Simulated assay, not measured.
Amino acid sequence: MIKNILCFGDSNTWGLNSITGKRFDENTRWTSLLAKNLECAFAIIEAGQPNRTLVHNPPFDGVLSGVSYLKPYLEAHRIDFIIIALGTNDLKKRFNLTPSLIADGLNDLINSIHSYYQQGSTLKSPKIIIASPPKIRITEQYSRIYEDADIKATELSSAFKSVAANNKCAFIDFNSFINITDGDGIHFDDIQHLAIGFKITQLVQNSLNNS
């Protein structure tokens, strides 16, 4: 049976190209590369949304918080893996959130997933992979929006790792192999998408081998 992987994240999951302002194509996005790497035994559900958060809804953008928008995907699909790649937008200055509070939002999201499958679904709860976003490089373009976010991002990685361990989720730290040095300091380039696709492929395969 084909296994479904839900990639639930923000603009870096959606595949925003900071140079063009458009979306990277299916030969570049890490979600699409994941599908190619895993081949026909897996179906990838690309659920990236620019500005999506873990805690608060961004002004003017409606229901983009993770908790409020994940349920429709769970209702529509039989999910075997959920990759949660969020947290960057929560670092914006206007939200005034500490890494600990953002990590609490991640914990709430994981609990919501477990509650959904325990209370109202006959399906088995999916494996969850937590991806910690890479450290932000503050550029002139985002200097006001992401003030001090580069400092918080390092703490956020550690907090996310603890949440993943406490909930028995797999964890991948983008900081360990990605360094955003070009572009706007926030979004992945094509080389970074390639690296992420490869690393998450390994993580999914290892999870299957150990199950």
Rank of each mutant, 00 (worst) to 15 (best):
N4L: 00
N4E: 06
I5L: 02
I5Y: 04
I5G: 05
C7E: 10
G9T: 11
S11K: 03
S11R: 01
N12I: 05
W14F: 15
N17P: 06
N17T: 04
T20L: 11
K22Q: 01
R23K: 10
R23P: 02
R23T: 08
D25V: 07
E26C: 13
T28N: 14
R29M: 13
W30G: 05
L34P: 02
A35K: 15
A35W: 09
A35G: 15
K36T: 15
L38T: 13
L38F: 11
E39M: 04
E39N: 06
A41I: 02
I44H: 10
I44G: 11
Q49N: 12
R52P: 06
H56P: 14
N57F: 07
P58V: 05
L64Y: 04
S68C: 09
Y69M: 12
Y73P: 04
E75F: 01
A76D: 06
R78W: 00
I79Y: 02
D80N: 12
D80P: 02
D80W: 07
D80E: 09
I84K: 01
A85D: 03
A85Y: 13
L86N: 05
L86E: 03
G87Q: 03
T88D: 09
T88H: 02
N89F: 05
K92A: 12
K92P: 01
K93M: 06
R94E: 10
F95V: 02
F95Y: 04
T98G: 07
L101C: 12
D104P: 00
D104T: 03
D108C: 03
D108L: 05
I110R: 04
N111S: 03
H114N: 05
H114Y: 13
S115L: 10
Y116R: 03
Y116S: 03
Q119A: 00
T122F: 02
K127M: 01
I129T: 01
P134N: 02
P134L: 07
K135D: 11
T139R: 12
E140A: 01
Q141H: 11
Q141F: 09
R144Y: 12
R144Q: 15
Y146C: 04
K152Q: 13
T154A: 05
T154C: 06
T154N: 03
L156W: 05
S157F: 10
S158F: 08
A159E: 14
K161H: 13
K161L: 14
A165V: 10
C169Y: 08
I172V: 14
D173Q: 05
D173C: 08
N179A: 15
G183S: 14
H187A: 08
D189P: 08
L194M: 10
A195R: 06
I196Y: 03
I196R: 01
F198N: 07
F198T: 07
K199F: 05
K199M: 11
L203S: 00
L203Y: 00
V204H: 01
S207Q: 08
N209E: 14
